[in-house]
Design a protein around this nucleic acid. Structure first.
Length: 876
DNA sequence: ATACATACC
DNA sequence: TACTGGTATGTAT
């Protein structure tokens, strides 16, 4: 080990600080030379020392992992293999290749914008950022090893002639708005991941596009380009106007390109294929902004993302929607390319000899024994080339924070006053979005780069400077006082607030279904706790009036009917569930309630619905915890239709058969969105139907005019029609439901190693108790699926969890380990201890959400804050 | 609920 | 001159 440490140190260096040439434009660089410079430049710095320390921690984890691996017996491995295969086959059945997902990414965005606006930079290596940190670099600079996330001073060492341009977010945001307008033409519900990136579902567009006349597929070249390329000399006036106002371009499919000759611009006609449609979109982006974009076309988000990187600068790549093509593609894909697998995960996998996805597939049994369920499920999906086929809408922000790095702050007095400043900024931001939160977290980073966080949760939500500072100040004081070698020397301080309870009505139910599915809180468990912050009994907010919101009809402020609608739903169920208790609704109950509401308020929109008849609806809407009213029950087979012959799990039929109470065999599945029976038992068909409903729902509420900004502050959503809003909530819930999957599983920890004899099941929050069916009391423990509410004829947790996964994954099931899409980013790794095993992974999307809740037509939100914004401006 | 870690842009 | 800022999520305690 002594020796090992020495080695470790070296490796640490390489692994954490070495160049990442994983990026486009960095092929064939002289890594050794670059790394040498990076090292020499960093060596000895406090930053470097800290990185070394962290690296060692990772190495220790890897060591533990290896030890564990060494103890695995053939038998365990065999068993794991069987389990893995089971999951794999279930996942395989859920594969959906019908959607056309596109991931678009602007090329070297910030740098490209700067170059466009300053021609002198065009031929020079340049980067955007500061000497402290770079956000992006152009391709020229990349040849020197200069890349995003690299400090400017090191970049300068690599490339002395590098020109560093300060960031100009307002400009990037403006450009971002322009490209988003175009995105919206192809998918009004596209999801922006950052200023320069987005996921789009082209499926619907393509369907319509097939019947589009050529005129709608014709677009004009920007006059400027024409002028230079073809010397087509237009009037200077026209050229000028266009340059200044790109909006003049005919870039809407609806506008008639027949005006072709009008400005004399050359026209380009695009075909009806996916490639053509995407090429057209990129063409329009370029004509409109003079910037290029790259795109990836694939059957799911995970793959699309990887594909967009394939032909990175100004190119696109389509992965054909066939299992064969997908598997081929996946095989040679380096694991690090997968969204969610970062530096640490990569290193751990590498330690196991896994570098690309084919290895991933080959080692699944082992991985299932060494990693957390969430992690290996993600690996499994990746190895199968699966990912989300439903692009989730932005979710509500979960936290808001501000942090700054500064020179060095050691005086308590100054630290406190700086803390106040942060609180002021944060309060201001909170006000803009009308938020209030109950948890305040202070973040500190000392001069040695060691990070510490301290949080406190209040019984009520706060939002003002005084309120936030009062908490942050205490937390800070404590740290200042407890610092051992006295002065607490800081280099960064941050304040975050979370645990939101929105100021305006909003939400009582829209936030998360997680709480409802979560053990201990789910209806199934009969727990008495309510999860959603807004439903908690504690004072909900600073104002007493609001505190009672969850218990009494909220005051109709602003006359928003939204408020009332929501209340009614709640009332109804409240009564149905246990009187006196807080309403505990299952996801389905809620979904159904919403559906009813939607129908009532908006019957007209239902006609073409994805469903067929509405009969199932008319029946009453009360459900018992486990049982379901008959009309619906018989269709409640919405769980994976994947009946694995002989397999007891996942088979709705069997599950039902074993359910004495409601053993009606069913030939149909009930859509969780429209709640109507879908005449099929085929999972993919069923999933398709659900996707359709989801899209429809979101389409309706989001499209009508742009109120799409509902992701925004509560206010905005108030403009939505109540019923429509509900539909969206359903979506949100579903997304959360899927996401929740990972939690349920994670709660139990990895299965295989444990005796799967013990029934586990829906774990009760904090107690890991499975939910047992009343009917089965006294017999073998029974697990009840929280989604379909059917008793599962299995006592194997993994099988059970998988069943739940399938149930949750309408869309594509697949989100098993919380990975891809809806769920967000599983990133995790477990820490020590149990450790050993766990760890890792997935992650996904993320960002984008928040601060700039940029939704297609949403109003400019707050500072886009992507990264950047370095120290420069701070000091203090 | 709190603290720490990983991840992404 | 000396390694960001914002958000989300996983995991353990």
């Amino acid at each position: 080990m002594e020796n090992g440490i020495a080695n470790t140190k070296e490796e640490a260096f390489l692994s954490r600080m070495a160049l990442n040439d994983n990026k486009a434009g960095m092929e064939g660089l002289d890594r050794d030379k670059i790394n040498k410079i990076i090292m020499e430049t960093s060596k000895g710095s406090r930053f470097y020392e800290n990185e070394l320390k962290r690296e060692q921690q990772v190495n220790q984890r890897i060591e533990k992992m290896m030890l564990q691996k060494a103890q695995i017996t053939d038998q365990q491995l065999k068993k794991a293999q069987a389990q893995v295969e089971k999951v794999a086959s279930a996942l395989e059945k859920s594969r959906d290749l019908s959607r056309v997902i596109v991931h678009v990414d602007m090329d070297a965005f910030y740098a490209a914008v700067e170059m466009r606006d300053c021609p002198e930079l065009k031929d020079k290596p340049m980067a955007v950022g500061s000497m402290s940190m770079l956000s992006t670099s152009n391709y020229h600079a990349r040849k020197f090893g200069v890349r995003a996330a690299m400090p400017g001073f090191i970049a300068k060492k690599l490339c002395p002639n590098l020109v560093i341009v300060p960031t100009n977010f307002d400009k990037y945001r403006a450009v971002s708005d322009e490209i988003r307008e175009i995105f919206a033409d192809y998918d009004p519900h596209f999801q922006p991941m950052s200023l320069d990136e987005a996921y789009l579902d082209f499926t619907d567009h393509l369907e319509q596009r097939q019947s589009w006349p050529e005129s709608l597929r014709t677009h004009r070249y920007r006059s400027k380009i024409i002028a230079s390329d073809e010397k087509h000399n237009e009037s200077d006036e026209a050229a000028e106007i266009k340059d200044l106002s790109p909006v003049l371009f005919e870039d809407t499919p609806n506008s008639s390109p027949s005006a072709s000759e009008s400005s004399g611009g050359a026209l380009e006609v695009f075909g009806t294929s996916v490639e053509e449609a995407v090429r057209e979109m990129r063409f329009r982006i370029e004509q409109k902004t003079t910037l290029t974009a790259s795109a990836g076309i694939a059957p799911n988000m995970m793959l699309a993302k990887v594909c967009s990187d394939k032909n990175k600068p100004n190119g696109q790549f389509r992965l054909l929607p066939s299992r064969e093509a997908v598997m081929d593609f996946i095989q040679s894909l380096p694991v690090r390319k997968v969204c969610g697998i970062g530096k640490v995960s990569e290193k751990m996998l590498n330690a196991l000899g896994i570098t690309n996805c084919s290895h991933l597939g080959q080692q699944m049994a082992l991985l299932s024994l060494l990693f957390s369920e969430t992690a290996w499920h993600h690996f499994m999906e990746v190895s199968l080339g699966l990912g989300s086929t439903y692009i989730p809408r932005h979710e509500e922000r979960k936290s808001m924070s501000t942090e700054r790095t500064f020179k060095e702050l050691s005086k308590a007095e100054e630290q406190l006053s700086f803390c106040r400043e942060l609180c002021e900024d944060l309060a201001e931001d909170m006000k803009k979005e009308g938020l209030k939160g109950k948890t305040v977290t202070l973040k500190l980073k000392n001069v040695n780069f060691e990070v510490k966080t301290r949080a406190q949760t209040l019984p009520y939500a706060v939002a003002t400077v005084e309120e936030i500072f009062a908490v942050a100040k205490d937390l800070l004081k404590t740290e200042i006082e407890n610092e051992s070698p006295q002065p607490l020397k800081l280099r960064l301080m941050g304040v975050r607030i979370s645990g939101f309870v929105s100021t305006e009505d909003k939400t009582p139910m829209q936030k998360s279904i997680i709480g409802f599915l979560q053990p201990g809180k789910s209806c199934c468990s009969g727990s008495s706790q309510i999860t959603h912050p807004n439903l908690e009994k504690d004072p909900l907010s600073t104002h007493p009036a609001q505190a009672s919101q969850s218990l009494h009809p909220p005051p109709v402020q602003n006359g928003h009917k939204q408020v009332e609608v929501r209340w009614q739903i709640k009332q109804r169920h409240s009564g149905e569930s246990q009187a006196g208790e807080e309403p505990q609704l299952s996801f389905f109950q809620r979904a159904h309630a919403r559906r009813m509401q939607v129908q009532a308020v908006n019957a007209s929109k239902q006609e073409e619905g994805c469903g067929e008849d509405t009969s199932a609806f008319t029946s009453k809407d009360s459900y018992s915890t486990v049982g379901v009213e008959s009309a619906t029950t018989k269709n409640r087979n919405n769980c994976a239709a994947s009946d694995q012959s002989g397999n007891k799990c996942d088979s709705p039929k069997q599950a039902q058969a074993s359910t004495s109470g409601f053993g009606t065999k069913s030939e149909t599945l009930t859509c969780p969105v429209c709640f109507r029976p879908v005449g099929t038992t085929d999972l993919s068909v069923f999933n398709k139907h659900i996707d359709c409903c989801l899209r429809k729902a979101s389409g309706k509420s989001g499209e009508s005019s742009d109120e799409d900004s509902d992701l925004d502050p509560p206010n905005d959503q108030l403009k939505c029609e109540g019923a429509e809003r509900e539909v969206e909530e359903e979506q949100a819930m579903m997304r959360n439901a899927q996401h929740d999957t990972s939690r349920v599983q994670a709660g139990e920890g990895r299965p295989s190693l444990k005796k799967d004899s013990e029934p586990k099941g829906l774990l009760v929050k904090g107690e890991n108790k499975p939910v047992r069916s009343p009917q089965r009391e006294g017999q073998r423990p029974v697990l009840i699926c929280p989604v379909c509410q059917l008793i599962q004829d299995t006592d194997d947790l993994t099988v059970f969890n998988h069943h739940v996964d399938v149930c949750l994954n309408w869309d594509i099931l697949v989100e098993l380990g919380g990975q891809a899409a809806p769920p967000k980013n599983p990133s995790a790794v477990k820490n020590s201890k149990m450790a050993d095993r766990g760890h890792l992974l997935p992650r996904q999307t993320s960002k984008g959400k928040s601060k700039r809740r940029d939704s297609p037509s949403s109003p400019p939100s707050k500072k886009p804050k992507s990264f950047c914004n370095t120290i420069d401006k701070f000091f203090r």
